[in-house]
Design a protein around this nucleic acid. Sequence first.
DNA 1: CTGAAAGCGCTTACAG
DNA 2: CTGAAAGCGCTTACAG
Lengths: 339, 339
Amino acid sequence: MMTKKVLLKDIAKKAGVSTALVSYVLNGLEKEKRVGRDVVEKINKIAKELNYQPNQIARSLRSGKTKTIGLIIADISNPFSGQIARFIEGEAARLGYTVIIGSTDENSTKFSSLIDSMLYRQVDGLIMAPAEGSSQKIKKLVKEQVPFVFIDRYFPGISANHVVLDNYEATYNAVNYLIAHGRKNICLIIYKTLAVHMQQRILGYKHAMKDNGLEDNIIVKEIPRRSYFQVKADTEKNMDELFADKKMDALLFAANALSISGLYAIRKHKIKVPDELAVIGFDGHEVFDFFEPPIAYIKQPLEEMGTEAVRILVEQIKGVKKTVHTEVKHQFISRESGG
Amino acid sequence: MMTKKVLLKDIAKKAGVSTALVSYVLNGLEKEKRVGRDVVEKINKIAKELNYQPNQIARSLRSGKTKTIGLIIADISNPFSGQIARFIEGEAARLGYTVIIGSTDENSTKFSSLIDSMLYRQVDGLIMAPAEGSSQKIKKLVKEQVPFVFIDRYFPGISANHVVLDNYEATYNAVNYLIAHGRKNICLIIYKTLAVHMQQRILGYKHAMKDNGLEDNIIVKEIPRRSYFQVKADTEKNMDELFADKKMDALLFAANALSISGLYAIRKHKIKVPDELAVIGFDGHEVFDFFEPPIAYIKQPLEEMGTEAVRILVEQIKGVKKTVHTEVKHQFISRESGG
DNA sequence: CTGAAAGCGCTTACAG
DNA sequence: CTGAAAGCGCTTACAG
């Protein structure tokens, strides 16, 4: 950048005042510091003329605040994460914060080093979808009183702010809907993981089955949690086996990538499915629109999740210490409801 | 953060040396500055014991480098942008840079203020997919010698680094492929915009038609460039009209969102398409897999685009002044080629 | 109402 | 080989 940067002291010199005055005026402290009205006007005028842009780095060093939020998610290239990121970025900007993003690939080592790297960049706080096996690292953050908010997932043993979906209700309701539509042999397809949000989806499914006297019909198919492309291959393999083994009249996919992979597998392998097969999955609207069996899907309120997380985090940064647990409600979109 | 931060001078005091020495050693300048071997060891040992993390803000203020890249795209929640963002973030991290992301929504005012906000956060350089109507702002950046790289698009009148797809060849080859497969009435569906990358896709289409003696069969359908959901509605409307009016045996969608919307419209409205209809679009693999007509798609090498952009930018930041124009090659994935 | 000055935590000529 | 000190560009008590 060739053109010499305009500094605070350039304005001060031109206005014939100290840099302190300029700083006060430009930060809106003119009332509090009772700066003379004419001085205020002169300073503002000169600042505008010179197109002064304060150096955020210097300001941060002095004030100890960077007005930056670190966002750690599994993978931005995943549309689910991408959309949340978008809403987070928007809300943060609205509140005067900039967002730094990093992806964990569900790897706890990478998760940990991302946190370190963001912290030494002095982010004011973190929003994160934690990878499994990261609770030690998280406990450190709690101890060091780093402001942070979990999103989408959390660790049950750690008291920390989080914004998550009502995972239990989501699958519970979906199963009831399927049963109300005459299905009895409903298979849950889910990642093989102990992560709480997935466990709650399983529980919602099982309870709904039980509450309808269908506990003997429970079928859970676990797919290894691996990278997106591997998930696709794994799901394909499992779908083949599934339909070879069992009689089923409904599938409930407990995650977005699973739905897409599963539907794709059925199509690609020309798996013969029962005529009355009904399918429900999480999000994945675009794909569902292209495929016949699905009768409904569970839509996660990503905007609400994202903006809520930012709002909570900013409160924490500003000193509110109360721990906040927010559960956002899913939307259930069926053909009838006009999805 | 309660636990007191470890500072450079804490290490210096404990080691009984000056902060300068510590800084040299920790920055790997021990050879250059010929620091005593035992001192080096002592400093490293203490730094590790105390788990010293340098304050990046202080370092930035002093050095004038933030090791941060600003990434400006249309919309992170768009999977296309999200994936590029992912690759950019990965390559940047590999080279020691952090990425700040902002979305323009194709709005030149927002584009401009994003640039300002990133610049005053002292990013070392920018990677951006410029919104239309932003050439004035860009000219300023050039004049101020801000290092930047365009991605996906560029302004023809401005000599600046860019990494773009071989847009002309992409549609030229696609048309030839369709013709080789017996299609003659090929309709190009494209955004109504003068943006260069789109213009080149049109040109590739028209030249290919002409070179095959089919200039009288040229049909171009323009869809307004609006937000994603509006695009969907607009495309649906246009698809209806299109098939009412014209006889066609192939569609070439010149953008990803158009392909998805277009295919969806055909499906949803149950538009009767000719049996032999062939469809080619840009990316959108997931959806193409679910739909019969497509016989091929144009895959953009997003990883190459992203990593290349970062590499070029970092070179520019480090002082290389040569302007770089890189054209990455599309991949053509057809049923036969095993997509 | 206003100014001189300290200080945020580093890096880096400069002097020895 | 090593240290004392200036300085990056701000903010903010402190003194008047």
